[in-house]
Design a protein around this nucleic acid. Structure first.
Lengths: 140, 140
DNA sequence: ACTTGAATCATCCTTTCGGGTGAAGGATTA
DNA sequence: TAATCCTTCACCCGAAAGGATGATTCAAGT
């Protein structure tokens, strides 16, 4: 971080110095203002891209949270909205009773949904359902 | 993407135009070359940072495929090798009995390990353990 | 030699899961 | 209207999971 800023400042200083040297050695009148501007603009734009990536890399790499539900997969497996809802809550680590409380239905209902879900996902346990659900793009 | 590039080019053109206007209106001799360079460098560096983030955001966001075990977290929570092993197998959707068979130990042993694991992770269920394990970087 | 921690296994007990089955009420569709 | 699907709930039963506690073995340090 600090090293990046220091390098950035040094680059700017070096750039100005080099241009000054060129100016005195080869007669500045041959080089137009536009040339300088374009040169500096290009170089520093590139430098900006590089510095920006360095500075924001860690933040960006930790995001990676774009989940897109595969609805065609839900249809293919015949999983209903309610069953998918139960799957999400199972994946979040809730017990059947907690899921029942959250959905305002009875424990039996949740058990029915989860049982049907396991049949459709062809799994035997909720942990497997979570795994398979993630593989199939049904949950994040 | 295209819009970004167009904006970028327009910004450059506008910048040069504005500077030219300033030059003709207020006599360029009062403004040093260094001033122009610093101004342009700063502006385009910032522009570069912005453009860089725009252009590389989606690429970077798709990385996130390499898992690195956070061993310091294991130590901090006092999770032993065997417990971590059990956690991995739990996360893969196996039952305690299947874990016992795979590790060539008794069911009771697996239950002991998982119980201790849940205490250290401060969870009540295996599904929660999987969730928390992923959050803490203990499992992929 | 003594302590400590990990790994192993046990027993007892309660809670949670999951399978099987049936059934009633609503919405959609043939 | 009849057929079908979704949602809801119930009861029974066996399997799995989890809590509490204690014990043994073994290796690593102190």
């Amino acid at each position: 971080m600090n090293r990046t800023i220091i390098l950035y400042g040094l680059s700017l200083a070096a750039m100005v110095t080099i241009l000054k040297l060129i100016e005195y050695k080869y007669f500045v009148r041959q080089l137009s203002l536009e040339f300088y501007l374009a040169l500096v603009a290009t170089l520093f734009a590139g430098l900006g891209v590089w510095a920006g990536k360095k500075l924001t890399y860690k933040k960006v790499i930790r995001v990676s949270g774009d989940f897109k539900l595969d609805e065609s997969m839900l249809e293919r497996l015949g999983i209903s909205r309610r069953e998918h809802e139960v799957l999400e809550l199972i994946a979040s680590g809730l017990s059947n009773q907690e899921i029942a409380d959250r959905l305002f239905v009875s424990l039996n209902t949740v058990k029915t949904h989860s049982s049907n879900l396991f049949l459709k996902l062809d799994v035997k346990r909720r942990t497997q359902a979570v795994q398979k659900g993630k593989e199939l793009g049904l949950i994040p």
